[in-house]
Design a protein around this nucleic acid. Structure first.
Lengths: 137, 137
DNA sequence: AATCAAATTAAAACGATTCTAAACTGTTGA
DNA sequence: TCAACAGTTTAGAATCGTTTTAATTTGATT
């Protein structure tokens, strides 16, 4: 058994764990993000979900919260086009399909892609992440 | 010997080959892009290079031209962040290092990365491209 | 309950990019 | 050669996702 599982902790515990004050807005957004299985959102889609769920929150707060959650390691940013920023509730090591026409993402487990002969980071640089994006049409 | 090598053709021939009218602006931008070895530009950096070279061209035309060249297969778009769009004069199959702090790119030859077990495209989808981005800090 | 830092917000600002519509320029055919 | 026209360029306005501002509200602490 692990010391602590993150699978079942609620929004409140999650916010406490990363030392973010559990405000009404953060709690509601955390529930929308983490109580529904892994998925991908943009600021706009999460804002719309919140509206639909009757949560009173501004778009600015959605942006703030997404960035705070990302900085805290609860979310991961996925860059697939310059039109908008995607956030992924799956923060494990994995890759992505990107459906270019629909603008949606699907996860690819890291174990399902075998990358060999990854070049060394040049000079003093350090690899912060390897992103594989398979673009689909 | 090949029927036609693209290594040494000039800007004029290049534009003719893709049926773009060889205007003063397109010729100048094509020279800046293709007469200097493979490299990466943004609309802003190319515009600045043009200014520095004494070429009179507007930023709007730089944007138009970059997109026309991309549609014609002379350039390839590289998505690494949402801040701005990069264009690559190397249109062969390859991948990228991205120096996050400097905002610069470096090519990685396709042969230098060995990807195995690439997942099939789901349902009716078709893979249009596989992008590997190694982020460096 | 009073206090105060932290959080939220509407609205303005921002920056990259795209659009508009007027002026200009290659190309074509007489 | 040059008139004519479609294609191109351009300044400036518009757009859109995102960030900032500054005032208000809220959560935690006493």
């Amino acid at each position: 058994m692990e010391l602590q599982s993150t699978d079942t902790i609620g929004a409140l515990e999650r916010l406490r764990a990363v030392k973010l004050r559990p405000t009404r807005q953060r709690l509601a957004l955390a529930q929308l993000l983490f109580d529904t299985g892994d998925h991908h959102v943009t600021a706009e889609t999460l804002y719309d979900q919140a509206q639909a769920a009757g949560v009173r929150v501004s778009l600015a707060t959605v942006y703030n919260t997404l960035h705070q959650f990302t900085a805290a390691g609860l979310l991961r940013e996925v860059v697939v086009n310059s039109a908008c920023t995607y956030f992924d509730t799956n923060v494990t090591d994995h890759h992505h399909f990107f459906y270019e026409d629909r603008g949606t993402l699907a996860d690819i487990d890291s174990a399902d892609i075998d990358i060999r002969g990854l070049p060394e980071a040049p000079d003093g640089a350090k690899i912060s992440r390897v992103d594989v994006i398979i673009r689909l049409t």
